[in-house]
Structures are given as C-alpha cells and as structure tokens.
Design a binder for these strands. Structure first.
Lengths: 140, 140
DNA sequence: GAGATAACCC
DNA sequence: GGGTTATCTC
C-alpha cells in the first residue's frame, strides 16, 4: 500500500545474493535451473481481465501505467466478494507453484535438511480453508 | 538464493520446534477424544447453494442425508476453480475473523509471538542458510 | 521490516 | 521501463 519510504536515504545497494535482482528469468544455460516464477497474485489475475475491458474502451491508449492506475483504483473499490474468484484463482496458482518449488528443491540441492520446508500459507483448498468459528450464517 | 520454501502441507506432522505455528484452536486435552474435524467453511457455503438446487430438483426428498451425500460427492468432483467463489467467501469470513482477533489481541496484550492474525505465513524459523556462493553471474 | 517481483506491451 | 498491488524472500 502506501509505501513507507522512510527517507530517500535508502540506498539501493545491490543484493549480496550475487544474482542480480531481475535477470535470467528462465535461462537454463546457467548452472542452475531457474526457479519457478512466482504465481500471479489475485490483483494481477484481475488485471488480465481488466486490461481487456480497458483496451476495448480505450484502444488507442497503449500506456501500461494508465491501465495500471485505473486497475488499481478499481481493485480497491471492489468488494472482497468480487475479488473472490481472482483470489481463488490465485490460490490455485499458488498450489501449482508450491508443487513446482518442491520439484525445484529436489533438483537443486536438497541438503537433506530434516525436510522442514517453510510451511507457507496453508489456505490452499478445502483442506485448510479458513476455519471460522461462527455457526451463524451471515445472510448476505 | 537456492533455499526456497516449499509447502509440504500434505504431511501434517507436528512441528518439533515446539512452537506450534498454528493457532491453538482448542487443541483439546491431547488425549481427549479427537473432535471430528469440522468441514471446511467453503464447503458449507457451497452447500447453501447446493441445497437450493437440490431442493428444486428433488422437492419431495426431505432427506438431509441425501442432499449431504450428493453435495459431498459434487464438492469433491468440483475443480478448484469452481470452488473459488466459495473459497473467496470463506476468505471474507476469515477477514472478519481476523478483525475480531485483532481486537482480541489488543485486549489481551499478547506478545507478537503467535497471536498474529492473518499473517499465518510461517517463515523459516531457524534455517541456517548456507551461504552458497553461486557467483556464476551470467557473463553478459 | 523492507526490498523485490510477478504480468502487460510497445 | 513504466505503474499498479499483493505476495515472497531475505
């Protein structure tokens, strides 16, 4: 959200990771198999549809920033229920991503750590749907 | 960085690190008769719609078990994308739940140890990250 | 806690 | 690269 840019004194020092921030997306030529790209979040999935609508109404506007602004604005105005399908899709993508990461871990170099993968948000599907303890059905 | 988190949400083995990341949902007295896991909220939301459809097609069938059984089979046959809207609704309920938890936390002066609301994303606890110097920078 | 990254498209 | 936001990784 509102970026909390403390001050402009934040120097963007290069990451010590060696790997530059954004580079080598899927270049297999490198010694390491590129790790799977992150799954699109709900907002991006929403943008896929939103760009279509936007492009139809503004076929001349090729600016990405324009549609991005409009999309962001729209997104914030949407109720959670309207975002639901996109969130659901994002969850689906995340499940697939997790599988890919699992393979990636095996492929890279599993140091045989006690198999303690950081348990990500386990809101995957029905197995771990958010359990709310309210028996009352909110008659929406 | 090669170390990446994979979600092994399948194996629900208890974490040996002691600190259960999950909220203690009334973990019962250990040896207590394991309370049957309540069905996921998303499924219940789905059933609300399913009962309507079912009642229309089988107006004479008053059997709750019939619709429940049919609903269960239907739910399992549904793809995740189809479940999405229901999952989204469940998320919505979770948001409300999180708000309640937030108020609860304020009230209870809890330490930000495990009473954290929605942010259930478990990070790598004590993961000794081996500083692999994969410095094979792409020579471009 | 904060920087980074994901798609889009020209 | 720009511009959004939610998620991720460190």
């Amino acid at each position: 959200m509102t970026r909390v840019s403390a001050s402009s004194s934040r120097t963007l020092k290069p990451r010590k990771d060696g790997k530059s921030i954004s580079k080598k997306k899927g270049v297999a030529s490198s010694s390491g198999p590129a790790r799977p790209k992150r799954p699109p979040i709900a907002f991006l999935l929403f943008m896929e549809d939103f760009r279509k609508s936007y492009k139809e109404e503004h076929p001349e506007n090729k600016s990405v920033s324009a549609v991005a602004k409009a999309g962001g604005e729209r997104w914030k105005s949407m109720s959670l229920a309207e975002k639901s399908p996109y969130i659901g899709k994002a969850v689906e993508r995340k499940v697939d991503y997790d599988k890919a990461m699992e393979s990636y871990n095996e492929n890279e170099n599993v140091k045989e750590d006690e198999a303690e993968p950081a348990a990500s948000s386990e809101k995957s599907t029905s197995e771990s749907t958010p359990e709310v303890e309210d028996d009352e059905e909110d008659s929406s």
